[in-house]
Lab assay of single mutants.
Amino acid sequence: GTVKVQGITIKVPNPDKAYKIAKKLAKKYNLTVTRKGNTIKVE
């Protein structure tokens, strides 16, 4: 899958794990995490 952070896309082998990490970071930096299948977008 991929993770998008402010325009940066990161390929990740485990979208579930990445999503959990993204959620933690999002809370810390007051961002929104959206997930569509293997693509995770943080904005």
Score class of each variant (00 low, 15 high):
Gly1Leu: 12
Gly1Trp: 14
Gly1Ile: 12
Gly1Val: 11
Thr2Trp: 15
Thr2Tyr: 14
Thr2Arg: 05
Thr2Val: 12
Val3Cys: 15
Val3Ile: 13
Val3His: 05
Val3Met: 07
Val3Ala: 02
Lys4Asp: 10
Lys4Met: 14
Lys4Cys: 15
Lys4Ala: 10
Lys4Ser: 13
Lys4Leu: 14
Val5Gly: 05
Val5Gln: 04
Val5Tyr: 15
Gln6Ser: 13
Gln6Val: 13
Gln6Trp: 15
Gln6Ile: 12
Gln6Asp: 11
Gln6Leu: 15
Gly7Leu: 09
Gly7Asp: 06
Gly7Glu: 04
Gly7Pro: 01
Gly7Lys: 08
Gly7Phe: 11
Ile8Ala: 03
Ile8Gln: 04
Thr9Glu: 07
Thr9Lys: 09
Thr9Ala: 09
Ile10Gln: 01
Ile10His: 02
Ile10Asp: 01
Ile10Ser: 01
Ile10Thr: 01
Ile10Met: 06
Lys11Glu: 08
Lys11Trp: 15
Val12Phe: 09
Val12Ser: 03
Pro13His: 11
Pro13Val: 09
Asn14Pro: 15
Asn14Asp: 12
Asn14Phe: 13
Asn14Gln: 02
Asn14Met: 12
Pro15Thr: 12
Pro15Trp: 13
Pro15Ile: 15
Pro15Met: 14
Asp16Leu: 09
Asp16Gly: 09
Asp16Glu: 10
Asp16Ile: 07
Asp16Cys: 15
Asp16Ala: 07
Lys17Phe: 13
Lys17Ser: 08
Lys17Thr: 10
Ala18Thr: 02
Ala18Pro: 00
Ala18Val: 11
Ala18Ser: 03
Tyr19Leu: 06
Tyr19Met: 06
Tyr19Ile: 06
Lys20Gln: 12
Lys20Val: 07
Lys20Ala: 12
Lys20Trp: 11
Lys20Tyr: 12
Lys20Phe: 06
Ile21Ser: 02
Ile21Gln: 02
Ile21Arg: 02
Ile21Asn: 02
Ile21Gly: 01
Ala22Asn: 00
Ala22Arg: 01
Ala22Tyr: 09
Ala22Phe: 15
Ala22Gln: 00
Lys23Gln: 11
Lys24Cys: 15
Lys24Ala: 14
Lys24Leu: 14
Leu25Thr: 00
Leu25Pro: 00
Ala26Leu: 08
Ala26Trp: 09
Ala26Gln: 05
Ala26Ser: 10
Ala26Met: 07
Ala26Lys: 04
Ala26Thr: 00
Lys27Gly: 09
Lys27Leu: 09
Lys27Ala: 11
Lys27Phe: 07
Lys28Asp: 03
Lys28Glu: 07
Lys28Leu: 14
Lys28Pro: 01
Lys28Ala: 10
Lys28Arg: 08
Tyr29Lys: 03
Tyr29Pro: 01
Tyr29His: 04
Tyr29Ile: 05
Tyr29Met: 06
Asn30Thr: 02
Asn30Tyr: 11
Asn30Asp: 05
Leu31Thr: 01
Leu31Gln: 01
Leu31Met: 09
Thr32Asp: 03
Thr32Trp: 06
Thr32His: 08
Thr32Val: 14
Thr32Glu: 06
Thr32Tyr: 08
Thr32Asn: 10
Val33Ile: 11
Val33His: 00
Val33Lys: 01
Thr34Ala: 06
Thr34Phe: 03
Thr34Tyr: 03
Arg35His: 04
Arg35Glu: 03
Arg35Pro: 02
Lys36Val: 14
Lys36Ile: 13
Lys36Pro: 02
Lys36Tyr: 11
Gly37Pro: 03
Gly37Cys: 09
Gly37Ser: 03
Asn38Pro: 03
Asn38Gln: 06
Thr39Ser: 08
Ile40Ala: 00
Ile40Trp: 04
Ile40Arg: 00
Lys41Met: 14
Lys41Phe: 15
Lys41Glu: 14
Val42Met: 04
Val42Glu: 04
Glu43Arg: 07
Glu43Cys: 15
